[in-house]
């Protein structure tokens, strides 16, 4: 009976375990290996030790991409409070039309990022783009959003925030709905106003959700690719200011066929994500309240 159950257990996880081994676990090991090699002229890989990593450290495109990616992630995190506000508004007692608002705020989340990228490419155009025409109407000379390397990453982050507000708001709304009503009732009896309730009850009790949202926002932001690829051209003058780590990985690995170098970029990205996530988990003890 017991040994039967064992066999069933192994049999049922076997397809998934095999698939994960082939398409996930083995590739991780192989990527690690590749990162210590260089592609030969006639194919094949030669062992070069740490050469790829030392080259990366000295590569201005890499340090640029690293800086752009970190700035993008920071901007995405700065956009998180917007989702809390939207969720709090959606959670107002007696609010009608919740489903209607939710649909609209969620629309960018379900729209293909490639399509989102193309749309914003038009909106951002320096000459005929609606954003600059709107700014011109109020007397502001708008920048070349997607052609100017100094502005590019901010333009990108604006799209990033716009397309993730709905997703995060849904998570926050679930968190808000998990806060027991009687806390608010007790606070009301004590004469606490709405704003005070928000800062004293809502925000502290929402911190587990906030932590989750911050971690996934950060991890996703560090891997941004689709929007960069669609908004900027391969030869865009803004690319030094918009190139992210994954975009650089794509360029090296698949456009320039530098497999070893690209593998090293991927490994650095993994390290970056692990370190920053570990820091988040370390910091959470200071500010996350688990009920």
């Amino acid at each position: 009976m017991k040994s039967r159950e064992r066999l069933w257990g192994y049999a049922l996880i076997a397809p998934m375990a095999l698939g994960l081994a082939v398409f996930y676990v083995w590739p991780i090991a192989q990527t690690l290996y590749l990162s210590f090699t260089e592609s030969g002229v006639f194919g094949g890989q030669t062992w070069v030790g740490l050469d790829n990593y030392t080259a990366l450290a000295a590569d201005e495109e890499m340090t640029g991409a690293l800086g752009n990616t970190l700035l993008y992630a920071a901007l995405m995190l700065a956009g998180v409070p917007l989702s809390i506000v939207v969720a709090a508004l959606l959670n107002v007692r007696g609010l009608r039309g919740l489903g209607f608002y939710r649909t609209i705020y969620f629309l960018p989340v379900v729209t293909m990022p490639a399509a989102v990228g193309l749309t914003w490419r038009y909106l951002y155009n320096g000459d005929f783009g609606p954003i600059n025409q709107l700014l011109a109407a109020v007397g502001i000379d708008g920048p070349y959003w997607v052609a100017d390397p100094d502005v590019a990453i901010y333009a990108l982050a604006l799209v990033g925030v716009w397309s993730s507000i709905g997703y995060n708001a849904v998570l926050f709304l679930a968190g808000l709905q998990g806060i027991p009503r009687h806390y608010y009732e007790a606070a009301e009896i004590d004469g606490a106003g709405r704003l005070r309730q928000f800062f004293r009850i809502t925000l502290p009790l929402l911190t587990p959700t906030t932590f989750f949202v911050i971690v996934i926002t950060m991890i996703n932001a560090l891997q941004v690719f689709d929007l960069v690829y669609l908004i900027f051209d391969l030869k865009s003058p803004a690319l030094p200011g918009a190139r992210t780590i994954v975009y650089f990985f794509f360029e090296q690995g698949f456009l320039k066929n530098q497999r070893g170098y690209a593998a090293a970029i991927a490994v650095v990205l993994l390290g970056l994500i692990l370190v920053l996530t570990a820091i988040q988990f370390r910091l959470q003890k200071r500010w996350v309240h688990y009920a």
Partner: peptide
């Protein structure tokens, strides 16, 4: 992250 899987 998925980038670790792509080359292999």
């Amino acid at each position: 992250p998925q980038e670790l899987f792509l080359l292999p």
